[in-house]
Simulated assay, not measured.
Amino acid sequence: MSKTENIIVGISVGDLNGIGGEIILKTFEDARVFDFCTPVVFASIKVMNFLQSHFNSEITLNSINNVNQIKDNQLNVFNVWNEPVTINFGQEDLNIGAYAIKSLEAATQALKNEDIDVLLTAPISKKTIQSDTFKFPGHTDYLAQELGGNSLMFMITDTLRVGLLTDHVAVKDVSKAITPELIQNKIDTVYTSLQKDFGIRKPKIAVLGINPHTGDSGVIGTEDDDTLRPTLQKIKESGKLVFGPYAADSFFGSNNYKNFDAIIASFHDQGLIPFKTLSFGQGVNYTAGLSRVRTSPDHGTAFEIAGKGQADNNSFKEALFAGIQIFKNRNEYAELTANPLKKQSKKG
Protein backbone atom coordinates (compact mmCIF):
# COMPACT_ATOMS: atom_id res chain seq x y z
CA MET A 1 0.00 0.00 0.00
CA SER A 2 1.10 3.55 -0.72
CA LYS A 3 1.78 5.82 2.24
CA THR A 4 -0.18 8.71 0.74
CA GLU A 5 -3.14 9.88 2.83
CA ASN A 6 -4.95 11.19 -0.22
CA ILE A 7 -7.82 9.27 -1.80
CA ILE A 8 -6.19 7.23 -4.56
CA VAL A 9 -8.14 7.21 -7.81
CA GLY A 10 -7.19 4.48 -10.26
CA ILE A 11 -7.93 5.26 -13.91
CA SER A 12 -8.33 2.71 -16.68
CA VAL A 13 -7.13 4.37 -19.85
CA GLY A 14 -9.95 3.21 -22.13
CA ASP A 15 -9.62 2.96 -25.91
CA LEU A 16 -6.33 4.63 -26.80
CA ASN A 17 -7.65 5.55 -30.25
CA GLY A 18 -10.45 7.53 -28.61
CA ILE A 19 -10.49 10.65 -26.44
CA GLY A 20 -9.66 8.95 -23.12
CA GLY A 21 -6.01 9.98 -23.02
CA GLU A 22 -6.84 13.56 -23.90
CA ILE A 23 -9.49 14.03 -21.22
CA ILE A 24 -7.24 12.42 -18.60
CA LEU A 25 -4.42 14.86 -19.35
CA LYS A 26 -6.74 17.87 -19.50
CA THR A 27 -8.27 17.02 -16.13
CA PHE A 28 -4.97 16.78 -14.29
CA GLU A 29 -3.36 19.78 -15.94
CA ASP A 30 -5.33 21.72 -13.32
CA ALA A 31 -3.00 21.38 -10.33
CA ARG A 32 -5.85 22.08 -7.89
CA VAL A 33 -7.24 18.60 -8.60
CA PHE A 34 -4.29 17.07 -6.74
CA ASP A 35 -5.60 18.63 -3.51
CA PHE A 36 -8.51 16.18 -3.66
CA CYS A 37 -6.91 12.96 -4.84
CA THR A 38 -3.83 11.13 -6.06
CA PRO A 39 -4.39 9.67 -9.55
CA VAL A 40 -2.93 6.47 -10.98
CA VAL A 41 -3.39 5.73 -14.70
CA PHE A 42 -3.10 2.06 -15.60
CA ALA A 43 -1.34 2.03 -18.99
CA SER A 44 2.35 2.49 -19.81
CA ILE A 45 4.70 5.44 -19.56
CA LYS A 46 5.49 5.09 -23.29
CA VAL A 47 1.84 5.54 -24.20
CA MET A 48 1.36 8.45 -21.81
CA ASN A 49 4.53 10.16 -23.03
CA PHE A 50 3.21 9.88 -26.60
CA LEU A 51 -0.13 11.37 -25.59
CA GLN A 52 1.57 14.08 -23.57
CA SER A 53 3.65 15.07 -26.61
CA HIS A 54 0.74 14.87 -29.04
CA PHE A 55 -1.48 17.14 -26.94
CA ASN A 56 1.36 19.47 -25.85
CA SER A 57 0.66 18.74 -22.20
CA GLU A 58 3.15 19.92 -19.59
CA ILE A 59 1.81 17.67 -16.83
CA THR A 60 4.35 15.79 -14.69
CA LEU A 61 4.19 12.01 -15.08
CA ASN A 62 5.52 9.56 -12.50
CA SER A 63 6.29 6.12 -13.96
CA ILE A 64 5.70 3.34 -11.41
CA ASN A 65 5.79 -0.44 -11.32
CA ASN A 66 4.20 -0.97 -7.90
CA VAL A 67 1.86 0.99 -5.68
CA ASN A 68 4.56 1.84 -3.14
CA GLN A 69 5.97 4.24 -5.73
CA ILE A 70 2.81 6.38 -5.92
CA LYS A 71 3.48 10.08 -5.37
CA ASP A 72 1.12 12.91 -4.54
CA ASN A 73 0.81 15.95 -6.82
CA GLN A 74 1.75 13.97 -9.92
CA LEU A 75 -0.07 11.89 -12.50
CA ASN A 76 1.17 8.42 -11.65
CA VAL A 77 1.41 5.94 -14.53
CA PHE A 78 1.33 2.28 -13.52
CA ASN A 79 3.10 0.27 -16.22
CA VAL A 80 0.72 -2.54 -17.14
CA TRP A 81 2.77 -3.26 -20.27
CA ASN A 82 6.15 -2.14 -21.58
CA GLU A 83 6.01 -2.80 -25.33
CA PRO A 84 5.30 0.09 -27.73
CA VAL A 85 1.72 0.54 -28.90
CA THR A 86 0.75 2.11 -32.22
CA ILE A 87 -2.06 4.63 -31.77
CA ASN A 88 -4.21 5.65 -34.74
CA PHE A 89 -6.76 8.12 -33.45
CA GLY A 90 -10.31 7.53 -34.58
CA GLN A 91 -9.78 3.94 -35.74
CA GLU A 92 -11.52 0.86 -34.39
CA ASP A 93 -8.74 -1.61 -33.64
CA LEU A 94 -9.03 -4.96 -31.85
CA ASN A 95 -5.42 -4.72 -30.75
CA ILE A 96 -6.08 -1.38 -29.08
CA GLY A 97 -9.20 -2.89 -27.53
CA ALA A 98 -7.03 -5.59 -25.98
CA TYR A 99 -4.90 -2.91 -24.28
CA ALA A 100 -8.06 -1.24 -22.97
CA ILE A 101 -8.94 -4.54 -21.29
CA LYS A 102 -5.41 -4.99 -19.91
CA SER A 103 -5.74 -1.56 -18.30
CA LEU A 104 -9.21 -2.31 -16.94
CA GLU A 105 -8.19 -5.69 -15.52
CA ALA A 106 -5.10 -4.26 -13.79
CA ALA A 107 -7.05 -1.33 -12.34
CA THR A 108 -9.83 -3.64 -11.14
CA GLN A 109 -7.32 -5.93 -9.44
CA ALA A 110 -5.79 -2.92 -7.69
CA LEU A 111 -9.28 -1.93 -6.53
CA LYS A 112 -9.93 -5.42 -5.19
CA ASN A 113 -6.56 -5.33 -3.40
CA GLU A 114 -7.44 -1.91 -1.91
CA ASP A 115 -4.33 -0.43 -3.52
CA ILE A 116 -6.64 2.22 -4.95
CA ASP A 117 -9.81 3.62 -3.39
CA VAL A 118 -11.89 4.54 -6.45
CA LEU A 119 -11.99 3.33 -10.05
CA LEU A 120 -12.56 5.88 -12.82
CA THR A 121 -12.94 4.32 -16.27
CA ALA A 122 -12.22 6.17 -19.50
CA PRO A 123 -14.49 5.21 -22.45
CA ILE A 124 -14.02 1.91 -24.27
CA SER A 125 -15.32 0.62 -27.59
CA LYS A 126 -17.79 -2.19 -26.92
CA LYS A 127 -16.86 -3.64 -30.32
CA THR A 128 -13.07 -3.75 -29.96
CA ILE A 129 -13.02 -5.14 -26.40
CA GLN A 130 -14.63 -8.41 -27.46
CA SER A 131 -12.33 -11.44 -27.49
CA ASP A 132 -12.21 -15.12 -26.57
CA THR A 133 -11.48 -14.17 -22.97
CA PHE A 134 -13.56 -11.01 -22.64
CA LYS A 135 -17.20 -11.35 -23.70
CA PHE A 136 -18.83 -8.66 -21.60
CA PRO A 137 -20.94 -5.93 -23.28
CA GLY A 138 -19.16 -3.26 -21.25
CA HIS A 139 -17.63 -2.17 -17.96
CA THR A 140 -20.69 -2.74 -15.79
CA ASP A 141 -21.13 -6.47 -16.37
CA TYR A 142 -17.42 -7.16 -15.99
CA LEU A 143 -17.18 -5.21 -12.74
CA ALA A 144 -20.29 -6.93 -11.38
CA GLN A 145 -18.51 -10.26 -11.83
CA GLU A 146 -15.24 -9.08 -10.32
CA LEU A 147 -16.51 -6.96 -7.43
CA GLY A 148 -19.74 -8.66 -6.45
CA GLY A 149 -23.02 -7.06 -5.49
CA ASN A 150 -26.09 -6.12 -7.50
CA SER A 151 -24.75 -3.74 -10.12
CA LEU A 152 -26.93 -0.99 -11.53
CA MET A 153 -26.20 1.69 -14.10
CA PHE A 154 -26.92 4.93 -12.22
CA MET A 155 -26.61 8.15 -14.21
CA ILE A 156 -26.07 11.06 -11.84
CA THR A 157 -25.57 14.81 -11.58
CA ASP A 158 -25.89 17.10 -8.58
CA THR A 159 -29.65 17.37 -9.18
CA LEU A 160 -30.69 14.31 -11.20
CA ARG A 161 -30.22 10.56 -10.71
CA VAL A 162 -31.57 8.01 -13.18
CA GLY A 163 -31.33 4.24 -12.73
CA LEU A 164 -32.45 1.48 -15.09
CA LEU A 165 -34.44 -1.71 -14.63
CA THR A 166 -32.83 -3.06 -17.83
CA ASP A 167 -29.72 -1.59 -19.42
CA HIS A 168 -28.06 -3.19 -22.45
CA VAL A 169 -31.09 -5.25 -23.42
CA ALA A 170 -32.69 -5.25 -26.87
CA VAL A 171 -36.05 -3.45 -26.90
CA LYS A 172 -37.83 -6.62 -28.03
CA ASP A 173 -36.65 -8.38 -24.87
CA VAL A 174 -37.38 -5.63 -22.32
CA SER A 175 -40.85 -6.69 -21.18
CA LYS A 176 -39.77 -10.31 -20.70
CA ALA A 177 -36.76 -9.21 -18.66
CA ILE A 178 -38.80 -7.12 -16.21
CA THR A 179 -39.94 -9.48 -13.47
CA PRO A 180 -41.10 -8.79 -9.90
CA GLU A 181 -37.72 -10.08 -8.68
CA LEU A 182 -35.81 -7.72 -10.97
CA ILE A 183 -37.94 -4.74 -9.96
CA GLN A 184 -37.43 -5.49 -6.27
CA ASN A 185 -33.70 -6.00 -6.76
CA LYS A 186 -33.13 -2.77 -8.68
CA ILE A 187 -35.22 -0.64 -6.34
CA ASP A 188 -33.40 -2.08 -3.33
CA THR A 189 -30.07 -1.25 -5.00
CA VAL A 190 -31.09 2.33 -5.77
CA TYR A 191 -32.58 2.82 -2.31
CA THR A 192 -29.46 1.54 -0.55
CA SER A 193 -27.19 3.59 -2.80
CA LEU A 194 -29.14 6.78 -2.10
CA GLN A 195 -28.67 6.19 1.61
CA LYS A 196 -25.08 4.95 1.63
CA ASP A 197 -23.55 6.76 -1.33
CA PHE A 198 -25.50 10.03 -1.31
CA GLY A 199 -26.44 10.50 2.35
CA ILE A 200 -30.23 10.57 1.80
CA ARG A 201 -31.91 8.99 4.83
CA LYS A 202 -35.43 8.49 3.45
CA PRO A 203 -35.20 8.48 -0.35
CA LYS A 204 -38.14 9.16 -2.66
CA ILE A 205 -38.02 7.10 -5.86
CA ALA A 206 -40.16 7.39 -9.00
CA VAL A 207 -40.52 4.49 -11.45
CA LEU A 208 -41.40 4.99 -15.13
CA GLY A 209 -43.85 2.69 -16.90
CA ILE A 210 -42.94 0.01 -19.40
CA ASN A 211 -45.49 0.86 -22.07
CA PRO A 212 -46.65 4.22 -23.48
CA HIS A 213 -49.06 5.85 -21.00
CA THR A 214 -48.31 2.90 -18.67
CA GLY A 215 -50.43 0.72 -20.91
CA ASP A 216 -53.64 2.82 -20.87
CA SER A 217 -55.44 0.24 -18.73
CA GLY A 218 -54.27 -2.63 -20.90
CA VAL A 219 -55.01 -1.05 -24.30
CA ILE A 220 -51.26 -0.65 -25.02
CA GLY A 221 -49.93 -3.71 -23.21
CA THR A 222 -50.64 -5.23 -19.81
CA GLU A 223 -47.12 -5.39 -18.33
CA ASP A 224 -47.58 -2.26 -16.23
CA ASP A 225 -50.81 -3.51 -14.65
CA ASP A 226 -49.79 -7.16 -14.35
CA THR A 227 -46.20 -6.81 -13.16
CA LEU A 228 -44.96 -3.31 -12.42
CA ARG A 229 -47.86 -1.76 -10.52
CA PRO A 230 -48.51 -4.61 -8.04
CA THR A 231 -44.78 -5.01 -7.36
CA LEU A 232 -44.40 -1.31 -6.60
CA GLN A 233 -47.39 -1.51 -4.26
CA LYS A 234 -45.77 -4.33 -2.28
CA ILE A 235 -42.51 -2.39 -2.04
CA LYS A 236 -44.36 0.71 -0.85
CA GLU A 237 -46.14 -1.36 1.82
CA SER A 238 -42.70 -2.36 3.13
CA GLY A 239 -42.04 1.27 4.01
CA LYS A 240 -40.06 2.54 1.04
CA LEU A 241 -41.19 5.79 -0.60
CA VAL A 242 -41.59 4.39 -4.10
CA PHE A 243 -44.07 5.91 -6.56
CA GLY A 244 -45.36 5.06 -10.01
CA PRO A 245 -45.49 3.83 -12.62
CA TYR A 246 -45.45 7.22 -14.32
CA ALA A 247 -46.01 7.82 -18.02
CA ALA A 248 -42.50 8.47 -19.33
CA ASP A 249 -43.39 10.89 -22.14
CA SER A 250 -44.39 13.77 -19.86
CA PHE A 251 -42.45 12.98 -16.70
CA PHE A 252 -39.34 15.02 -17.43
CA GLY A 253 -40.96 17.79 -19.47
CA SER A 254 -43.34 18.55 -16.60
CA ASN A 255 -40.39 18.82 -14.19
CA ASN A 256 -41.94 16.09 -12.04
CA TYR A 257 -38.49 14.51 -11.79
CA LYS A 258 -37.48 17.35 -9.45
CA ASN A 259 -39.78 15.92 -6.77
CA PHE A 260 -37.73 12.73 -6.37
CA ASP A 261 -34.26 11.70 -5.24
CA ALA A 262 -34.00 9.18 -8.08
CA ILE A 263 -35.93 7.99 -11.11
CA ILE A 264 -35.88 4.39 -12.32
CA ALA A 265 -36.56 3.92 -16.03
CA SER A 266 -37.75 0.62 -17.45
CA PHE A 267 -35.21 0.50 -20.28
CA HIS A 268 -32.04 2.14 -21.53
CA ASP A 269 -33.19 4.92 -23.85
CA GLN A 270 -36.25 5.76 -21.78
CA GLY A 271 -33.89 6.92 -19.04
CA LEU A 272 -30.76 7.99 -20.85
CA ILE A 273 -32.31 10.19 -23.54
CA PRO A 274 -33.83 12.64 -21.04
CA PHE A 275 -30.82 12.36 -18.74
CA LYS A 276 -28.34 13.26 -21.46
CA THR A 277 -30.63 15.95 -22.87
CA LEU A 278 -30.77 17.64 -19.48
CA SER A 279 -27.16 17.14 -18.44
CA PHE A 280 -24.91 16.17 -21.37
CA GLY A 281 -21.29 16.98 -20.64
CA GLN A 282 -21.93 17.14 -16.90
CA GLY A 283 -23.35 13.70 -16.22
CA VAL A 284 -21.64 10.75 -14.57
CA ASN A 285 -22.15 7.03 -15.08
CA TYR A 286 -21.94 5.50 -11.61
CA THR A 287 -22.16 1.75 -11.06
CA ALA A 288 -24.27 1.47 -7.92
CA GLY A 289 -24.51 -1.71 -5.88
CA LEU A 290 -20.89 -2.82 -6.13
CA SER A 291 -18.62 -3.47 -3.18
CA ARG A 292 -16.29 -0.69 -4.40
CA VAL A 293 -16.75 2.71 -6.08
CA ARG A 294 -16.60 3.03 -9.87
CA THR A 295 -17.52 6.05 -11.98
CA SER A 296 -17.20 6.98 -15.64
CA PRO A 297 -18.05 9.93 -17.92
CA ASP A 298 -21.44 9.83 -19.62
CA HIS A 299 -20.03 9.65 -23.16
CA GLY A 300 -18.17 7.24 -25.40
CA THR A 301 -14.86 7.14 -27.26
CA ALA A 302 -15.82 10.01 -29.63
CA PHE A 303 -13.63 8.60 -32.42
CA GLU A 304 -14.74 11.41 -34.74
CA ILE A 305 -12.80 14.03 -32.75
CA ALA A 306 -10.08 11.82 -31.25
CA GLY A 307 -6.57 13.23 -31.45
CA LYS A 308 -7.76 16.69 -32.50
CA GLY A 309 -7.53 18.36 -29.09
CA GLN A 310 -11.26 19.13 -29.16
CA ALA A 311 -12.50 16.79 -26.41
CA ASP A 312 -14.43 18.27 -23.48
CA ASN A 313 -13.22 16.82 -20.20
CA ASN A 314 -16.06 18.17 -18.02
CA SER A 315 -17.91 14.86 -17.68
CA PHE A 316 -14.67 13.04 -16.86
CA LYS A 317 -13.85 15.65 -14.22
CA GLU A 318 -17.37 15.35 -12.78
CA ALA A 319 -16.92 11.56 -12.67
CA LEU A 320 -13.65 12.03 -10.78
CA PHE A 321 -15.19 14.24 -8.11
CA ALA A 322 -18.34 12.11 -7.88
CA GLY A 323 -16.20 9.05 -7.16
CA ILE A 324 -14.27 10.90 -4.47
CA GLN A 325 -17.45 12.16 -2.79
CA ILE A 326 -19.19 8.77 -2.92
CA PHE A 327 -16.11 7.14 -1.37
CA LYS A 328 -16.24 9.69 1.46
CA ASN A 329 -19.99 9.23 1.89
CA ARG A 330 -19.60 5.45 2.12
CA ASN A 331 -16.94 5.77 4.79
CA GLU A 332 -19.09 8.18 6.78
CA TYR A 333 -22.12 5.89 6.46
CA ALA A 334 -20.07 2.91 7.64
CA GLU A 335 -18.78 4.91 10.60
CA LEU A 336 -22.25 6.11 11.59
CA THR A 337 -23.67 2.61 11.24
CA ALA A 338 -20.93 1.19 13.43
CA ASN A 339 -21.34 3.98 15.99
CA PRO A 340 -25.04 4.76 16.56
CA LEU A 341 -24.22 7.15 19.41
CA LYS A 342 -22.32 9.37 17.01
CA LYS A 343 -25.32 9.26 14.68
CA GLN A 344 -27.61 10.43 17.48
CA SER A 345 -25.17 13.18 18.39
CA LYS A 346 -25.08 14.30 14.75
CA LYS A 347 -28.90 14.45 14.67
CA GLY A 348 -28.91 16.64 17.72
Rank of each mutant, 00 (worst) to 15 (best):
S2D: 04
S2E: 06
G10S: 09
S12C: 07
L16R: 00
I19A: 04
G21T: 04
E22L: 06
A31L: 14
R32I: 12
D35M: 11
T38P: 03
V40D: 02
A43I: 07
M48H: 06
H54F: 12
T60N: 14
T60A: 14
L61G: 13
L61S: 11
L61M: 12
N65H: 15
N66A: 04
K71H: 12
L75N: 10
V77H: 10
V85E: 08
F89R: 05
D93M: 06
Y99G: 05
K102F: 12
L104S: 09
E105A: 14
A110M: 12
L111W: 00
N113I: 00
E114G: 00
D115F: 10
F134Y: 12
P137K: 14
D141A: 13
A144F: 03
F154R: 08
L160H: 07
R161K: 15
V162C: 01
G163H: 05
K172I: 00
A177F: 04
L182Q: 11
K186P: 06
S193Q: 01
L194T: 01
L194N: 01
G199L: 03
I200A: 10
A206Y: 06
L208S: 07
H213M: 09
S217E: 13
G218T: 05
V219P: 00
T222V: 08
D225G: 15
D226V: 09
R229G: 00
Q233M: 13
K240T: 03
L241H: 13
V242H: 12
A248S: 15
A248C: 02
F251Q: 07
Y257Q: 04
K258L: 12
D261F: 04
I263P: 03
I263Y: 01
A265M: 06
D269I: 05
G271M: 13
Q282M: 11
Y286C: 02
Y286T: 00
R294Y: 07
S296F: 11
H299F: 00
A302N: 06
A302V: 06
F303D: 01
K308L: 14
G309E: 08
L320C: 01
F321L: 11
F321N: 08
Q325M: 11
F327L: 05
F327E: 10
K328A: 03
N329V: 01
E332Q: 13
E332N: 12
L336N: 08
P340F: 03
P340S: 07
P340C: 04
